[in-house]
Simulated assay, not measured.
Amino acid sequence: MLKTLFLATVAVAMPAAATVSVTFDDLINSGPFLVVSNPYTSPQGVVFTNDSPNAEALIAWGSSDSANADPGGATLVNNYSFTSTTISGPSRFTLTAIDFADPFAGAVGGDILLRFLFTDSTTADLTLSLSGDAGLTRFTLGIGNLSAVTYTPLTTRGPWVQVDNVVLDDVVFGGVVPEPASWALMIAGFGLVGAAARRRVVVA
């Protein structure tokens, strides 16, 4: 009984991993563009912070604007050249996929630098290249154990870039989910604690 109660308490205390898809559709607007707060926090709790000190550092194109790579929807755009935007919020996540586009949704290519910050504080860089087709280019990555990702347009027009459909898996807010090996050790330990508790009860 004690072991069952202890395990139930631990299960409640441990944060659950989830999947999050940020579409920016909460930013849909009918104007030429919408100035977005910086940092911008999505309804799912994912934070996008641009390093520009300017008040209009982030914008979303209007739903019918020809520059919008997601017609009828919305994308997030850095409004100043040579700036970086950091994706954060969860304490751990996997960047499964992300869409980038030319800032004006044109058939123009360019490179974007991604810098990954892992939960162990190490970093790694990856350069993505737009396809050169009009609209969004989908990048499937599947890079896990991240605490933040920073993207910086390098050779796109501006350089600016618009982003959409950010898919995060294994998302954890407010804590870190143990690795499988750690779970195994924890469960074994819980079993020993429960067995010891039973013996004490029997002896008493």
Rank of each mutant, 00 (worst) to 15 (best):
residue 82 F to N: 15
residue 199 R to M: 04
residue 76 L to E: 02
residue 190 F to E: 12
residue 165 N to R: 08
residue 13 A to T: 13
residue 67 A to D: 13
residue 36 V to D: 05
residue 83 T to K: 15
residue 54 N to D: 11
residue 115 R to F: 12
residue 128 L to D: 05
residue 33 F to T: 08
residue 5 L to V: 08
residue 26 D to V: 08
residue 11 A to F: 06
residue 41 T to D: 00
residue 88 S to R: 15
residue 90 P to E: 08
residue 181 A to F: 06
residue 81 S to P: 08
residue 72 G to M: 06
residue 35 V to S: 11
residue 7 L to P: 00
residue 164 D to S: 08
residue 106 G to A: 13
residue 190 F to T: 04
residue 121 S to D: 12
residue 107 A to N: 10
residue 14 M to I: 15
residue 156 T to H: 00
residue 132 G to A: 04
residue 192 L to T: 04
residue 157 R to H: 02
residue 100 F to Q: 05
residue 156 T to P: 00
residue 126 L to Y: 12
residue 41 T to K: 09
residue 199 R to I: 08
residue 92 R to I: 00
residue 163 V to G: 00
residue 134 A to E: 12
residue 120 D to G: 03
residue 100 F to E: 05
residue 101 A to C: 09
residue 170 D to M: 03
residue 81 S to H: 08
residue 113 L to T: 04
residue 36 V to Q: 06
residue 188 A to N: 11
residue 75 T to Q: 03
residue 87 I to A: 10
residue 175 G to M: 05
residue 64 S to P: 00
residue 50 N to L: 04
residue 190 F to S: 10
residue 31 G to K: 12
residue 100 F to I: 06
residue 1 M to P: 09
residue 12 V to P: 00
residue 25 D to T: 13
residue 71 P to N: 07
residue 197 A to M: 12
residue 74 A to Q: 02
residue 56 E to Q: 14
residue 128 L to H: 06
residue 107 A to W: 07
residue 183 W to N: 05
residue 187 I to H: 01
residue 46 V to R: 05
residue 84 S to Q: 13
residue 93 F to Y: 15
residue 82 F to V: 07
residue 100 F to Y: 13
residue 177 V to E: 11
residue 87 I to R: 12
residue 168 L to I: 09
residue 122 T to M: 06
residue 47 V to N: 02
residue 124 A to F: 08
residue 188 A to E: 11
residue 108 V to Q: 03
residue 178 P to N: 13
residue 160 W to L: 15
residue 101 A to Y: 09
residue 186 M to G: 12
residue 80 Y to T: 09
residue 176 V to T: 10
residue 197 A to Y: 06
residue 189 G to F: 09
residue 192 L to G: 02
residue 85 T to M: 14
residue 106 G to W: 03
residue 132 G to M: 06
residue 203 V to D: 08
residue 139 F to T: 06
residue 141 L to A: 07
residue 38 N to E: 12
residue 129 S to V: 07
residue 159 P to T: 01
residue 11 A to I: 07
residue 152 T to W: 03
residue 114 L to I: 14
residue 31 G to N: 14
residue 164 D to L: 07
residue 84 S to G: 11
residue 45 G to N: 09
residue 5 L to F: 04
residue 163 V to R: 03
residue 133 D to W: 02
residue 121 S to C: 00
residue 23 T to H: 03
residue 105 A to V: 09
residue 52 S to H: 10
residue 117 L to H: 15
residue 47 V to Y: 01
residue 189 G to C: 09
residue 168 L to E: 10
residue 166 V to Q: 04
residue 132 G to H: 05
residue 174 G to L: 12
residue 42 S to T: 05
residue 105 A to T: 06
residue 173 F to W: 08
residue 48 F to A: 02
residue 184 A to P: 01
residue 14 M to S: 02
residue 176 V to E: 01
residue 179 E to R: 14
residue 166 V to L: 15
residue 50 N to A: 15
residue 191 G to F: 14
residue 41 T to R: 07
residue 108 V to T: 13
residue 103 P to H: 10
residue 190 F to V: 08
residue 6 F to A: 13
residue 160 W to M: 14
residue 54 N to A: 14
residue 145 N to I: 00
